[in-house]
Design a protein around this nucleic acid. Structure first.
Lengths: 173, 173
DNA sequence: AGTTGCATGTAAGGAGTTACATGATTAA
DNA sequence: TTAATCATGTAACTCCTTACATGCAACT
């Protein structure tokens, strides 16, 4: 159950509407946790029912702004500090690699080269984010910076691995 | 839609029962794509209805063995070669990092140190797999080996990043 | 006779995706 | 007045998880 906690985390920083939250997902959070609008609006309703967030104001175009409650902050804290934390991750792109032996060598190598290319594109995009940001050093931004660095290191590692894997496939298949 | 394709991929290698497939998920595939038994049995029924797999034999204890059909191989091939491939991944562990600023410095550092520890444990487990395996070099095993190497590199990168991130948090928060 | 491992599922519910649907406000 | 953007949702469906449920076979 991560989406509700992601919303609580964003609202812990400042009040926001569903629309605002969706934009903040797209620019940043979506890299590690994508979310659809129907799901965000649905979760906001549930969180509100549970008293973890509350409507703090309304605006033009039936805008409804939510803020986190004390109960919400406690829930967020629990999620961040509980010991049995979920480290599972899923990647369809890696799953495919298990089955590359069913293709020809050329097709397999193509797949891995594409894998490398996608990761280099992502790396370039993240470098642009890093270079264009103004680093003021508030705690929120620092955590974003940590994730950004993870992205930089991770896409580099992935791209290099895919190059290596393409060579191994060429050699051994 | 990855689970049905994962099953097709495993059956492309050799016929197997739901039980067999579950064991093969646990030892290997589950790292990139976890699956529950209820889901596997359910998917097998669906794939069979669609004609992508078929019952190839029965055994003791109502064992039912499935094999992939030609239509199934075509479907698998399509999934592996289609251009608009899904590179999204989800990680609750990284999502949490976005919100470490809501904790104290000590708690944040604890989280990252635990992150590093988990990755070093995983690394050790993968090294054991690598060192205990007999490498005969058939195509199926080579693809497994590529994934294993991804795991080794990825957990190393993740552990080193977490060390680095813990230092940054200590310095800047 | 009892335990372990093999083998298959159902039921219920929550998480996530895709498509559809509506309406208000602002700027060109 | 038209288009873009802001803003909120519902409906239908699939995917995934957890808990429950059953029974056979082999070994001790």
């Amino acid at each position: 159950m991560s989406l509700p906690h992601a919303l609580l985390g964003l609202l812990a920083e400042q009040p926001a509407s569903g629309y605002d939250l969706l934009k903040r997902f797209e620019s940043g959070l979506a890299v590690v946790w994508p979310a659809q609008k129907s799901q965000v609006y649905g979760e906001l309703a549930k969180l509100s029912e549970k008293g973890l967030i509350e409507v703090t104001g309304t605006g033009a175009r039936q805008r409804r702004e939510y803020g986190i409650t004390e109960a919400g902050r406690a829930e967020l804290r629990g999620w961040l500090t509980e010991p049995g934390t979920d480290f599972a991750f899923r990647s369809a792109a890696l799953l495919r690699v298990f089955f590359l032996w069913t293709l020809s060598r050329e097709e397999g190598v193509d797949y891995l080269e594409n894998f490398a290319r996608i990761n280099r594109e992502r790396l370039a995009a993240l470098e642009a984010v890093r270079d264009n940001a103004e680093w003021v050093g508030d705690p929120v931004q620092i955590c974003g910076w940590l994730i950004l660095e993870y992205g930089l290191r991770g896409s580099t590692t992935s791209a290099e691995w895919a190059d290596w894997a393409a060579e191994r496939l060429t050699e051994h298949l």
